[in-house]
Design a binder for these strands. Sequence first.
DNA 1: ACGACATAGTTGTGCCCTCAAGTGTAGCGC
DNA 2: GCGCTACACTTGAGGGCACAACTATGTCGT
Lengths: 160, 160
Amino acid sequence: MSSPATSPPQQLESWVSFLRAHAAITRELSAQLQREHGLTLNDYEVLLHLSHAEGAMLRRVDLAERVLLTASGITRLLEGLERSGLVCKRTCESDARVSYAKLTDAGLAKLRAAAVTHLRGIDELFTGRYSGSELVTLAELLSRLPVTGSDCKGGSPSCS
Amino acid sequence: MSSPATSPPQQLESWVSFLRAHAAITRELSAQLQREHGLTLNDYEVLLHLSHAEGAMLRRVDLAERVLLTASGITRLLEGLERSGLVCKRTCESDARVSYAKLTDAGLAKLRAAAVTHLRGIDELFTGRYSGSELVTLAELLSRLPVTGSDCKGGSPSCS
DNA sequence: ACGACATAGTTGTGCCCTCAAGTGTAGCGC
DNA sequence: GCGCTACACTTGAGGGCACAACTATGTCGT
């Protein structure tokens, strides 16, 4: 009863690798993005999601869900992006509560520029280390993990 | 030249899953640990590494490397752990520059208690979602990713 | 119409972490 | 012995993020 507490079983190795790899990769990727474009990883993801959205705009709450941030996190993040002119605010005519974040032309240009750096970085640190079929396997395995905070907090039985 | 910039190719899906899974899992795990034991994920890892070390103590700089934190991060983290009495400082007789962090009895007890919660959480959110052989595959794939900041910054040729 | 409840977003507070700069100690060439 | 560089660690400043509390708006039952 005491040994498993301090010496983790073999299966945990994948979890440890997962943790360490994430820390190492995101640190480097984030540094690249910041150095060369002044963006955070999350900044980038927000711009990316906006660029894919209908009309290049999204409700703040939807944005939060997609990039896995809390509402307040999104408020602060967009603050910075708005100051830089990469996104702008838009109010909703039918519901005064919601405000959209809309990608500006400058924002799209920034995203295009950053994507070059970023995709190269991802390839170096992540995708480039695998063959095509391995990537498929990996994607399948990773897709089984939780994606939203809610599916692992005992709220729904769908996680079993 | 313009389309790949805003619409990521298929391979990126595994990267995206990786990012999102990490965010969701660590958030939940961290919340569990904090709620039930008042520890961070990093706190836990530090205690764990110390428990495995010779004499239950480690130089701060080595600790930093293992948990992928900067030197200053370790200083701050240990500050908290020392205040809680889970680790204590020890000076080195042969080299006055180094100071060790040593796990206390209370720290070991805390680790043991937290491990129960934590291992269950990891199983729920990560390892429990795979079969034994899948876990092996996953561990192998993940082990190819960078682990230290230095192996992807051109420092050593060992990453090629 | 009115109150209860849900939803969108903002703000105060605080933690964790990083980077850059600084202190104290070791080892080395001369 | 004396400076030089290397190393271990600490400190100050700042950023990113979460949680909780709050405002404002919408929706529904009665």
